[in-house]
Every structure is written in C-alpha cells, then in structure tokens.
Simulated assay, not measured.
Amino acid sequence: MLLEENNYDEAFSLFKKLARETPSVQSLNNLAWLMLREEENRDDARALLEQALVLNPKSSFPYMMLGEIALHNRQYEKAKNYLQKALMFNETEEATYNLAMAHFHLGEFEQAATVFSCCEGDSGLTQLHEVVSWLNAGHIDKAKALLANWNEEADDYTGAIEIADVYIELGCYNEARVQFEKEWNSCYLAPYIVSRYAYTLWKLKDYDTCRAIIQQAIQQNKEEQIDEQERELEEHWTAQDRDECIKELTEQQQTLEMLWPRLENGVVPPFDYDMYPNGGCQLFGCMQHGHPEYEEVARGEIL
C-alpha cells in the first residue's frame, strides 16, 4: 500500500525488514523486484532471487527476473534456462520476448524468429526483431515478406529509419531509400544513420544525393556546435558539460567528413542492431496489476 501511495522510502524499508526477518519466496522476490526496478542493483537482486530458488518457488516471477538479469549480463544460456522455466508456470509476454532474445544471442535464429512471432503487436520493434532473426537464419524470403506487409498505421509501428536499416541488410536498396526519405528531414542526423543512408545512395549510384546528405549532416553538426558554445551556463549545464558535448560533436563531425572517402575505398558501414530485455511487474500482491500474494499463487500454481 505504501508503494502504491508513492511512499517509496517507507515501503522499501518494510520490504527489507520482511526479507531479513521472515525470508520467504514472496519477501525475497519482492525485495529483489525493488532492487532491480527501483534501485537498479542487479547483483543484489540476483542474490535475493537465488535465495528464493532454494525454496522451490511455484511461480514464474523469480525465474523471469533472473532471466532478465542474465540477459543484461550476457549470460544467454543461463537466461534461456531461467525463461523456459518461467514459461512452464505462465506464458507471459515479457518471458516470451526475453526467451526469443536469448535464442537470438545464442545464434539460434530460427527459434528466435519463431518465438518473436508469438509476441503481440503489429509492425513494431518486436516484429522487426523477427525479421532480423529470419535474415540471420538465412530465410531471406520470410524476412522480405514480413517487411512487405508492414503496417504504417499500427499503434506500435516502428520508425521508417529502422526499417530502412534492415532493408539494407536484405540488399533492397530502393526500398531502403524510400524508408529513409520518409523521416530524413525530421530525424537527428547521427553519423550512423547518415552512413547507412549514404551507403544506400552509393549502391544506387546516386552520388550527388549521397554527397548532399553528408554535407547536410556536417552543416547541421557545425550549427549544433555553435548553439552549444552560445548556450548559457547554469546549475544543470556546466562548462564541463558544454566541453564534453562539444568534444562529442567534434568527433562526430570528423566521422562525417571521413564518410565519403571511406565509401570511395569500399568500406561498408556495419549494421548495428540492438535488442533490450523486457521488464514488467513481478511483484506479489501488486494491487495495480492485480497480482495475488504468493500463498494464493502456490495454492493455485499460477504466475
């Protein structure tokens, strides 16, 4: 109740007291959840959850969090084992997604694609993960078919720039260009995005436009440096903050200025694709999400 009322310090104190004085699946799990979600202390959360496992929990919650932590720590085989155990108790969206991610990082691309396809959503980032999984599995036709039916009106539609990036890996440069053009004038021209679009135009032999978009990015970068130089210093924007920002922008400018020569030398800008674990609520007795107390879970063997 204290947590629901945003009395975090009091709630946290009580959770710690319960875990210390009456360690149980619920008290250890709930304190671990706070450590993971609020304190961002994965090591302490993992230690608490491992204590809970000794008690043979009849719930997916501890296993889901341990799987998530293992993903963050790049322990993918361990993550897969935890998440498969979690799904034996309850097939949740978070556990399914995280299991697919574990498969992906283990090089089990077909399994990853199949599991990602079980997740909810329409034309969102999860579906793009499925496309990339099929791509890595060598099923190019499946990857292309999914992208060909992308729904721009979907609620969780992922950005055109991200789609363009994947089209490049499929060798579909015309399709990639169409996607880049949709958002080019509204996106931040980071060196990675510029390099990927420039490479697309280079492959299409549109050298004039390729030069133009590189120069556009360089000019935008120079203007941003001027803006940061003239920005008024304050408590939350110190001279050190300014200098670090300008240093980063200067490095980005140098990268952009080298882009054209690198393309001339046949350098292919590498594909940089990230996935991040899903979190969610694994708190016994959470009123907001309607989670029962662990005793109720154990009796019914749910969650």
Rank of each mutant, 00 (worst) to 15 (best):
P62R: 05
Y63T: 07
K80F: 11
Y97F: 11
Y63Q: 00
L99V: 13
N98D: 04
A95F: 06
L99Y: 03
E68N: 11
M64N: 12
Q84P: 06
A70F: 08
K85F: 09
A70L: 08
L87F: 09
P62V: 08
Y63L: 03
I69L: 00
M65T: 06
L71C: 07
E93M: 11
G67Y: 04
E77P: 03
L87R: 14
L66I: 08
A70Q: 03
L71V: 04
E91Y: 09
Y63N: 00
A100D: 03
Q75R: 15
Q75W: 03
L87A: 12
A79L: 09
Y97T: 09
Y97Q: 03
K78A: 13
E77N: 05
Y82T: 05
G67A: 13
L99W: 04
M88D: 15
E93C: 06
K85V: 14
A95E: 02
A70D: 04
I69T: 01
T96R: 08
A95L: 02
L87T: 09
E91I: 08
Q75A: 12
A100N: 08
K80P: 04
M64K: 14
N90E: 11
M65D: 03
T92N: 04
A70W: 00
Q75V: 04
K80A: 14
A95H: 02
M64A: 12
A70K: 03
K78F: 07
E93L: 12
L83Y: 06
R74G: 00
L87D: 09
H72K: 13
Q75S: 13
N98K: 06
E94W: 07
Q75K: 15
R74C: 11
L83C: 10
L87S: 09
M64G: 11
A86N: 04
A79Q: 04
R74L: 11
N81G: 08
N98L: 03
L66D: 05
N81Q: 14
E94D: 14
L66F: 05
N73Q: 15
G67R: 07
A100Y: 08
N98C: 07
M88N: 15
G67I: 03
L99I: 10
Y76E: 09
